[in-house]
């Protein structure tokens, strides 16, 4: 499976990839005098209510919502910063680097706490912890692991059950996967042991969360590591099939961020959208804002939430990335 994914993403001609979107929808199409283009990694289903409440406020605006993976967002946006008004992604590091490189427009009149924004150009609007999501059937009669250490023990105890049935992001393909992996590695050595154990059990690698959660739901895999829990819940119809576990040893929490392109065609409208996004997340009810809002008790979870700071560029450094990926492949593939 991993091989196939690698094949599809790695070997397809670049042009073809550039044209393909995971999803592409236009809201308020009729009234379109201005079309706001949003490139995003968030599933349309989760984002639609936000867009709909926006266009109900600004009925003369149409929104084209383009969904793709985080790494692809970064590639496309850097290639054509004038093609998109808004960039929304869960890969904080890639977003940060774009803002640092001056690709984000500074919005001076948006009030947002300092920890949830960077340089008035990158605005966080969700707090989403990475989770271990398990298929309940696979753990029937067995203790549910609550930490990474317990997960390692559970995997080692029943390798026959888990072989070929563990999934995680292919960090080489997924920006969010890479972010979670590097933050995990930074936090604890346990990450590497877990990767070695998973690698030895024929780890499946996914480009995107969708397929991973689909495979988990139908029982193809029993464990998905470093998935967005809330995301999984939203995607799965029969919620009792899976269980979302936020590891108790060290949670890794990501903040979804939005920015206005420095070369946006409709910068005012884009800024208004960010304003709307921020206002909506704080007044959140689950219907109008289906994503987990910003963690208000940030201080408690301070160590767990990835900070919007220049350090996010560390693992994006070419040398650093190269050696991290080498180590990761070493752990995951050599044991394969």
């Amino acid at each position: 499976m991993r091989f196939i994914v690698t094949l599809i993403l790695g070997l397809l001609p670049q042009a073809l990839v550039a044209q393909a979107w995971e999803d592409r929808q236009t809201f308020n199409e009729g009234a379109s005098t201005q079309v706001l283009r949003i490139i995003s990694s968030t599933d349309t289903a989760l984002f639609a209510p936000i867009i709909e409440s926006f266009v109900s406020q600004y009925p003369y605006i149409a929104i084209e919502y383009l969904v793709t993976g985080t790494a692809d967002i970064d590639r496309r946006f850097r290639a054509n910063p004038d093609a998109f008004d808004l960039v929304i992604s869960s890969a904080m590091d890639l977003q940060f680097k774009s803002a640092n490189d001056g690709l984000a427009r500074r919005l001076t009149n948006i009030a947002h706490p300092a920890w949830a924004q960077w340089r008035q150009s990158l605005f966080a609007f969700t707090s989403e912890p990475a989770a271990i999501v398990i298929n309940r059937d696979a753990f029937a009669g067995h203790p549910i692991p609550n930490t990474r250490q317990e997960l390692i023990q559970a995997l080692r105890a029943r390798p026959e059950v888990f072989r070929g049935r563990i999934g995680t992001y292919d960090v080489r393909q997924s920006g969010l996967g890479y972010l979670f992996a590097t933050q995990d590695a930074r936090a604890s050595e346990t990450y590497w042991r877990l990767m070695e154990v998973m690698g030895a059990l024929d780890l499946r690698l996914y480009c995107c969360s969708g397929e991973m959660i689909d495979d988990l739901t139908d029982g193809t895999i029993a464990v998905a590591y470093n998935v967005l829990g809330s995301y999984a819940k939203a995607r799965v119809k029969s919620k009792d099939k899976i269980q979302v576990i936020f590891p108790a040893d060290f949670p890794t929490t990501m903040m979804r961020t939005a920015m206005v392109s420095s070369q946006a065609q409709h910068p005012e409208m884009a800024a208004a959208f960010i304003q709307h996004l921020i206002a909506l997340q704080s007044s959140a009810d689950e219907v109008s804002f289906p994503l987990p809002p910003l963690n208000s008790q940030l201080n408690q979870a301070e160590h767990a939430t990835i900070a919007l700071e220049p350090a996010l560029m560390t693992f994006l450094d070419a040398l650093k990335r190269k050696s991290f990926l080498a180590e990761w492949e070493d752990a995951v593939i050599h044991n394969n």
Binding site: N100, G102, A114, W118, R119, Q120, R186, A307, E309, P310, A311, L312, M313, T314, D317, L319, K320, S323
Partner: peptide, 26 residues
């Protein structure tokens, strides 16, 4: 082969209240 494992703290210590931009070259 030169390897530079940039410590996370190297950039982390450059955080400022005004969110200053950081550039580097090796």
């Amino acid at each position: 082969v030169v390897e530079i494992d940039i410590p996370y703290a190297s950039f982390s210590m450059l955080s400022t209240p005004m969110d200053d931009r950081v550039f580097y070259a090796i």
